[in-house]
């Protein structure tokens, strides 16, 4: 067996373990929390009272305007100075959640705004109130349009979790760094780590395709027409 293959096989178990215990949970949790936060932020910006609109804009402005790595450093290394001490994983989770929240709020806002006014009026005309019209008429239609851009956010997030290594979360990329520190084989190990990220992203892309097909079928459109 060639040396490089042996090395890859030997390091596969610790890398997959780090992936499973830290990268995957960090991704799933921060996407779930972030999407919730993004949804609420979008509603605040579209329909909230003026102070809430301002707050939502401020939040999106800060998060989109500063580097994710710097945000993680502020949360993990900075906040202890004011007495807020967080473990590495929760600190990273907060950072990624805030990020997904800001970016997805723009997506949610755009897709909700893209539903024609006539659909709201049709809902009101059959007696629905605002919340019913939103839930029954607008969101199901907006969801379909939102799948591709939200999938982008999700896939970016998987890769961005590698930044958590810098705030001491022992996730996939940090596990790779540790192996490199003892094996002195950066090219092979980092390529292996990259391949694992690639595999994760590919799984998500495939899931996106299936979801798009399903949502397209559920409105009588051929999947091709929905593309």
């Amino acid at each position: 067996m060639p040396h490089w293959l042996q090395l890859m096989l030997d390091s596969l178990a610790p890398l997959l373990w780090a992936c499973l215990v830290f990268t995957v949970p960090l991704t799933l949790l921060s996407f779930a929390f972030g999407l919730t936060l993004g949804f609420l932020t979008a509603l605040a910006r579209l329909y909230g009272p003026r102070p809430l609109v301002a707050l939502a804009r401020f939040y999106v402005w800060i998060i989109r305007g500063t580097p994710l790595l710097v945000q993680l450093f502020v949360i993990f290394y900075g906040l202890p100075s004011v007495g807020i001490l967080l473990d590495a994983f929760p600190a990273a989770l907060i950072g990624f959640t805030l990020n997904v929240g800001a970016y997805s709020s723009e997506i949610v806002r755009a897709v909700i705004a893209s539903i024609p006014k006539g659909q709201w009026e049709a809902s009101y005309s059959i007696g629905m109130n605002w919340a019913q019209a939103l839930r029954r008429t607008v969101l199901p239609q907006a969801a379909r349009t939102a799948v591709p851009p939200l999938s982008n956010t999700f896939i970016s997030l998987v890769k961005d979790t590698s930044l958590a290594a810098a705030v001491t979360v022992p996730e996939l990329f940090q596990a790779a760094q540790r192996i490199v520190a003892t094996s002195y084989e950066p090219l092979i190990i980092y390529i292996e780590a990259a391949l694992i990220y690639l595999a994760l992203s590919s799984v998500l892309s495939a899931l996106q395709d299936r979801l798009e097909h399903r949502l397209a079928r559920a409105s009588g459109l051929a999947p091709e027409a929905a593309r």
Partner: peptide, 27 residues
Amino acid sequence: TGMVFQNFQLFPHRTALGNVMESLIVV
């Protein structure tokens, strides 16, 4: 009141039956 719009404004994500049932179920 019931309203019929110039451009129909059916709910595209519901079948014909689903469109008609909507107010009965939800409202």
